[in-house]
Design a protein around this nucleic acid. Sequence first.
DNA 1: TTTTGAAGAGAAATCGATTTTGTTGTGGAA
DNA 2: TTCCACAACAAAATCGATTTCTCTTCAAAA
Lengths: 239, 239
Amino acid sequence: MREQAAGARSLSRAVFADVRAEILAGVYPPGSKLSPRAIATKSDVSLSVVREALTRLAEQGLVNAAPQLGFSVVSLDLEDVRDISKVRIVIEGAAFKDAIEHADIEYETRVLAAHHRLVRTPIWSDEETHTVSEEWSTAHAQFHSALLSASTSPRLRELAEGLRDTAELYRRWSGTLAVDQPERDIPAEHEALMQAALDRRSDLAEKLIGDHINKTTELLAGYVETHPVEVAALNGVQP
Amino acid sequence: MREQAAGARSLSRAVFADVRAEILAGVYPPGSKLSPRAIATKSDVSLSVVREALTRLAEQGLVNAAPQLGFSVVSLDLEDVRDISKVRIVIEGAAFKDAIEHADIEYETRVLAAHHRLVRTPIWSDEETHTVSEEWSTAHAQFHSALLSASTSPRLRELAEGLRDTAELYRRWSGTLAVDQPERDIPAEHEALMQAALDRRSDLAEKLIGDHINKTTELLAGYVETHPVEVAALNGVQP
DNA sequence: TTTTGAAGAGAAATCGATTTTGTTGTGGAA
DNA sequence: TTCCACAACAAAATCGATTTCTCTTCAAAA
């Protein structure tokens, strides 16, 4: 019997989860080709299994699938960055609002706990190069998930998570420097988000999350615009 | 060489489009099993091709994929009907608003033309049984697409279209009778939607489309609640 | 020197067969 | 009569090989 990731009841799912995690972790540069054969060899499974996993990733939008041309990671595109941001503001805003309107003690506890963990996790893994730590990224994602966790709409939550993942991927690619922002106080923004949730001020919360997303995006878009060379180099790499 | 649907550059895509159209057309009852082998035989392609197509449909949410249990069409679930409606109101509302705010003459022309076609298409194909005609369904879908066609966000439009397809599928399953509504004037609602678009009243438009979706859903939900036997029978069929 | 075309190498898409897993029906024991 | 175990069957998941397409290279002609 071949080993599988826990929880995945089929090889496809295991490979799907693996590749997805690798893409999100930034292992593959934007636009780089994903060779089914290479992945099949590496994971010790057959091609069909990899194809199925890649097909699912393509449907999620994390991978491009061109017939006869194979699969590749999505590339860093300014238009798309802005588009995702727009859609995120709509969806995550609605989900956050809905969550607060259906909040209970459990929800408040989850938000408070996730915020505490986020605050206590060091943001930099390397103070010199300003590299965002893996732990902080995880804590950050979990905090935002917690904010939506009381939403009554599974589909809304699912959409929000998926879009946030893609946005996070873009952030990684644009370099960790992008998080370096003089005129911005991220901990304060998170604090405000938590407070709005605990105070059950759903309209304020919706506005805050929109601003939060907007700021991050504009900074990222600014980076892409001011560093065309680096971005082109990223997109150009085809290992 | 094997024949392919026009535009599909691979067998998978052709099969994907075929099966998707069949599901949307109501060929398969809700919850019914989709046998890869049967489809493969019918379309004269290999199993892997069908599997890939079904995998994509599953990722889109039109099909359930359970490891070791195969694929099946989604079943008619009241919770999900309501959830889809909620999400649609958010997304289609945002897309409609965005479209109006970026409207131009081309857009207005498209909306007007689609509305005209909708008005001129007979709603019933069979006056006795109140069966909604295929032509009207198509015209209706095209009208709603036209309303969003000026939106600047491709992702928003894509999401809206996908959710609308699923909602339309649920409507078909719930029986054509569900469209039969004494206290409702559908042509007037469509007229109002068009007018709001032409007058560029984006806030009003967002509210109107929300109401439009809500009314349809509540009627559908009402049908499911008052006809549990028929719904169970639909979901029970496993050909 | 540049451009065009053909051949070959490499990769993707597809196929049929094999392995694995889930289901159903039967028989025996409680 | 009901429950559990076992076996036969059916279906899905996986695999290795084949076919088809794309990209690159090299040579000949302009």
